[in-house]
Amino acid sequence: MTSSLVKRAAIFTFATLVGVGPLIVFASASGASGSPHTAYQTTRKNAGTPNSSKVTLNPSTGVVISYGNKYITYNAPSTALVTLGQALFLQNCASCHGTEANGVPANGTVGSFPDLVGLGPATIDFWVDSGRMPAADVRAVQAIRHTPRLNPAQAVAIAAWVNSLSPSYPDIPTPNLKNANVSDGAALFALNCASCHTIEGDGDALASDTFSPSLRNIPAFEVVEAVRTGPANMPRFTGNLSDQQVDDIVKYVTTEIQHPNNPGGFGLGGLGPVAEGFVGLLLGVGILILIAYWVGERQ
C-alpha cells in the first residue's frame, strides 16, 4: 500500500520534472513574446510543481487530488465544481477576462486584462477569496483587499473551472502550523518579506501608486498562496523557499504579526519612529508644556 504510493509519487515527480520543466521555458518564452507593451514582462504560468513526497491521485482517473508534506498540503479543487465555477465565472469575471478566461472580453481590446488560463488554482483562489476580484475599480493601479463578493466555496469553484481549461499548479494550500517553527519564520520574514511589508507587517506605499498590503488580517492559506504565486507586483517565492520555510513564515505572520503581544503598552499602529515622534512631541512635550502653563505665571 505505502510502497505503491511512494512508487506513484516517484513516477509523478519524475514525470513533472521531465514534463513541466521544459514547459516553464516554453511558457516563459511565449509569455515574453505575447506581451503587448514590453519585451520583458514576466509570466506567472506554471508557478509550481508538486515536487513533494506525498501525492494522492484519484484512483479512477489518475489525476492529482492532493500533494504536499507535513508542512503544507495542496488540494486540487474538485472537478465536480467545474460547472458551478463556469457559471460563476461568466457572471462575475467574464466581462473583463472573457468567456474563455483568456483576457479577451467580448468587446474589449486584447491585452487590457490578464489571461488566466494556466495560472493554477491557488492564484485564482487568492484573488477571489481576498476580495480583490471581482475588481471594485478596474482602472485602479492595484486591486485592494475587500470583503469578498464570492464566498470561499465559490472561489474554489471558479478556480476549478479555470484550472480545468489548462491544469496547472500550485493547488490550494493548507498549511499545518503545528509543525512550523516560529523563530525560523521570524528570521525568514525579516530577510524575505520585511523589505516590502515592513518588519511589523503593516505594508507601505511603493513605486508608482502601488503599495504593499498590511498582513494583519490575512488567513494563513492566503499567505501561502501569495508567497507561492506572487500576485501582482509581489515577487514569487518557489524554489528558494521550501514548504517548511513557508510554513514557518506563515506561523510567524499569523501569530506575532497578527497578534503581537505588545508587552510595552499600545503598539502605536506599528508605524515605528514616526508615530513615536508624534506621541513623544505632542503627548509628552505637549502635556508637560500645558502643565508648565499651569505652574508658571501667564501674562
Binding site: 516553464i24 514576466t42 506567472r44 518557489t238 524554489g239 528558494n240
Partner: peptide, 20 residues
C-alpha cells in the same frame, strides 16, 4: 548560494522570483 549556503540551481527560481 542563498542564506543557508545552498547553491542556486538553474531550476530553483520561478519567473518573478527574487533571492538574496
Amino acid at each position: 548560494v542563498d542564506i543557508t549556503g545552498r547553491r542556486v540551481h538553474q531550476g530553483d527560481l520561478a519567473i518573478g522570483s527574487i533571492v538574496t
